[in-house]
Design a protein around this nucleic acid. Structure first.
Length: 430
RNA sequence: GUGGGUAUAGUUCAGUGGCAGAACGCCAGACUGUGGCUCUGGAUGUCGUGGGUUCGACCCCCACUACCCACCCCA
């Protein structure tokens, strides 16, 4: 076939039966979020490019080289074209909406969650796509509403542990860190740079480069020979100011009390500029190199950076694509059964019409029924029922219609029954 | 953006410089009222795309594209 059109690079179709797993995760999230007081927000898939430049950070990899950006057509000749971007993440959009609708004026703390596609122009890989799906939640509000409290950090993390258990993912690790406030990070970056100047020549090529461009990234290096050197570098914890240190201690104290296991990872560096204080990441072993299942942290200055009021916040995003991969790796997951309960088999000439009525009645009674096409061959009916994945087969033939008694067979146990028309639904439920 | 690997039937994969293959699946029949067995027959396809070498290329060479793995980065 000439000129077949295929899904573009990094995008994919998610087909049944895998979509059942996606629904399973989405439903579990909605259910758990609701219990923790979160409500859904839906923001646009594209935004003004400036939102991400200012929110996520001009210098981040995401903004500097991974965004799908284009120029809109100018509304008038005198106007400049607006630069638009497919959202590479959703936190900036949520905070934009918070500011735009003056949600802070309610005085309440906002607890919002979202589910939707995000877009980054990266090289595709296992667990990484150009259109990928995130589920995330954000808590933000005026300081007076308590949004800055370490209790919120711990609550979010506890909710995630709860969620993972509910969904069926057991093999996870929680990494925790505090990156302090903006001032702390500048001082720490400076200290790192100075410390690296003395030792970077002994390190790998990547690290020598990072020492100049982004010293925090050196901490992420996995080269074995570099590990002793990295261990000897200054630690972020030594550069936190007193309020940040206090805040972090409180988060840890609550987590300990609630019984959530975590590892402090002072080398965990997150690539979005808006993070302050608490940052965390849940990882999973079954994901290959892209082991981060979900990640998040506090962003106390984001609202102000976007021209809004002071509105401390904390949130996370989980990668739905990776969640499903992890779920598949865990094996023990109960996938919802989407198969029809019964296959309605028209048997003999002119039975389609009769079968259609019976199938409709069953469906009205909330029974998932698959309707077959009339055939004379019993074997074909069985094969079709099997293929449809049905548990039962119901025969609709001349004899049945005449007598009002229908043959019903359990394909799993082989058990057979003759059932009056009105009793079919009840029998199938029982 | 960089490196490595892969691309043959619906699927999983063999294969050889000279007629395109297996298994499973699919379709039909034996076989029109309780199957799942068996037997018989059938179709599987621009061998990823475009060039080149050659009498001849699915095979060798080049380019491209896509996918996979890893780096980078992130969810």
């Amino acid at each position: 076939m000439a000129g077949v059109i295929k899904a573009v690079r990094g995008t994919r179709d998610i087909l049944p039966p895998e979509t059942a797993l996606w629904q399973h995760v989405e439903q579990a999230c909605r259910e758990i979020f609701h219990r923790y007081g979160f409500h859904e927000i839906r923001t646009p898939v594209f935004e003004d490019t400036q939102l991400f430049a200012r929110g996520v950070g001009e210098e981040t990899d995401i903004v500097s080289k991974e965004m799908f950006t284009w120029e809109d057509r100018p509304r008038a000749q005198s106007e400049k074209a607006q630069s638009l971007t497919l959202r590479p993440e959703n936190t900036a959009g949520v905070v934009r909406a918070y500011i735009e609708h003056k949600l802070g004026e309610t005085g309440k703390m906002q607890k919002l969650y979202y589910i939707g596609p995000q877009f980054r122009r990266e090289r595709p890989q296992k667990g990484r796509y150009r259109q990928f799906y995130q589920i995330g939640a954000e808590v933000l509000g005026p300081t007076s509403a308590g949004s800055e409290s370490p209790a919120r950090d711990a609550e979010i993390i506890a909710m995630l542990a709860h969620l993972l258990r509910e969904v069926g993912i057991k093999e996870w690790t929680l990494q925790l860190n505090s990156v302090g406030c903006a001032g702390d990070r500048v001082r720490y970056g400076q200290a790192l740079r100075e410390a690296l100047a003395a030792v970077k020549d002994k390190m790998c090529a990547d690290c020598r480069r990072r020492a100049e461009t982004n010293p925090l990234r050196v901490l992420d290096c996995k080269v074995p020979e570099d590990q002793p050197i990295i261990e000897s570098l200054p630690k972020i914890s030594a550069y936190l100011d007193e309020p940040c240190r206090e805040h972090f201690n409180e988060v840890k104290k609550i987590l300990n009390h609630v019984g959530i296991r975590y590892e402090i990872n002072e080398r965990m560096v997150r690539g979005l500029d808006y993070y302050t204080r608490t940052t965390f990441e849940f990882t999973h072993g079954g994901l290959g190199a892209q082991s981060a299942l979900l990640g998040g942290g506090r962003y106390d200055g984001l609202s102000e950076a976007l021209g809004g009021p002071k509105a401390p916040g904390i949130g996370f995003a989980l990668g739905l694509d990776r969640f499903v991969l992890a779920l598949q790796a865990e094996e023990t997951v109960g996938v919802p059964d989407l198969n029809p309960v019964v296959y309605v088999a028209p048997l003999g000439q002119g039975m389609n019409a009769e079968a259609a009525v019976i199938a409709r009645d069953l469906r009205k009674k909330a029974i998932a029924a698959e309707l077959g096409d009339e055939t004379f061959r019993l074997k074909k009916s069985f094969e079709a029922a099997e293929r449809a994945g049905a548990r039962y087969i119901l025969f609709v033939g001349e004899n049945e219609v005449a007598s009002g008694q229908f043959g019903l067979k359990d394909l799993k146990s082989g058990e057979q029954a003759t059932v009056a028309r009105e009793q079919i639904a009840a029998k199938l439920r029982g």
